[in-house]
Simulated assay, not measured.
Amino acid sequence: MTELRIAIVGFGKIARDQHVAAIAATPGATLAAIASRNASLPDLPHFATIEELLSKGPPIDAVSLCTPPQVRRAQAASALAAGKHVMLEKPPGVSVSELDPLIAQAERSKRTLFATWHSRYAPAVEPAREWLAARRISSVHISWKEDVRVWHPGQTWIWQPGGLGVFDPGINALSILTRIMPRPVFVTAATLSFPSNCEAPIAADLTLADATGLPITAEFDFRQTGPQSWDVIVETDGGRMTLSGGGRRMAVDGKVLSEAPDAEYRELYHRFVELAATGAADVDLSPFRLVADAFMLGKRTIVEPFVD
């Protein structure tokens, strides 16, 4: 099998912590170069920008865009125009509407565009989806609370327009929700808490439903300093199903039915290699649309300034 030669564009915390090891562990994939203004890896070709990578870099087949979402559309368009497959870290862009031209460009060029939702690849998500398919669901509650200073230290882009604020982790919960629910869901109301010195929310409370009126609530908070929570709780006629640890553990009425170590990014790259073999696309925008709707419908409140 021919190796998919991948360049990482944007070499921040998530690229260092997750992408490098995942590529190394994926059969059929190899890390060929880095494009970043501020970081590099020993013994790998390094370029300051994607333009420099594409014009002067070694032969590559694909790019993995780990830059802030505000700049990904232009980078993806350049890579597709150069005949490269493209993986987009989540969220896939800065707006929903900017993705349609990229999807069309990928289709015309017969190159893969892969909008990734890494939390969907957490090990207990598929067992949860299969279990729920045979149950009658009465309610869903999401609690997704973490300390931004731990998970996004010094990342000012997250507080800028398009950075999403607390929806950067919250969209992970919505990606799980839209995968495990048997019917599409939509936002009916939201309250968004904006620090007085930021352009993105630090907390959000969402009310959602499906076409049957199923009650769904979600609490997102970036101010959690105690135990972190990444939980989806579903009340059903077969008991309370809890997905915890960001989708790594599934339990019903306290009995663990599925649990495994994290392999989310390894699974993402396995899927990327699979897609690139045929030039197929995988771009599900349903979690992103829920975030956009929360911003559209959300009541905004101003809270204390955020100091990193």
Rank of each mutant, 00 (worst) to 15 (best):
I158Y: 00
G162T: 13
G162V: 13
G163H: 02
G165A: 12
G165N: 15
V166L: 01
F167W: 15
G170N: 09
A173R: 00
L174G: 02
I176K: 00
L177Q: 06
T178H: 05
T178W: 04
R179Q: 07
M181E: 15
M181A: 08
R183Q: 14
V185S: 12
V185Q: 06
V187P: 11
T188W: 11
A190S: 13
A190D: 04
T191K: 12
L192C: 05
P195G: 13
P195H: 04
S196T: 06
C198D: 00
E199A: 14
E199Y: 07
P201G: 08
A204F: 00
A204G: 03
D205V: 04
D205G: 01
L206D: 09
A209V: 05
D210W: 03
T212W: 05
T212N: 04
G213W: 11
L214K: 14
I216N: 02
I216P: 06
I216S: 01
E219K: 05
E219H: 15
F220I: 10
F222Y: 08
Q224L: 01
Q224N: 13
Q228I: 13
W230A: 11
D231G: 08
I233C: 07
V234M: 00
E235W: 01
D237Y: 11
G238I: 09
G238K: 08
G239W: 07
G239I: 14
R240H: 02
M241D: 09
T242A: 07
L243P: 02
L243S: 06
S244T: 14
G246M: 07
G246A: 06
G247L: 03
G247Q: 02
R248T: 13
R248E: 07
R248D: 03
M250P: 03
A251S: 14
D253L: 02
E259K: 01
A260N: 03
P261L: 00
P261E: 04
A263K: 09
E264A: 12
Y265V: 08
Y265L: 10
L268Y: 01
L268E: 15
Y269G: 01
H270S: 13
F272K: 00
F272Q: 02
V273R: 12
V273H: 11
A276H: 09
A276C: 14
A277F: 09
A277E: 11
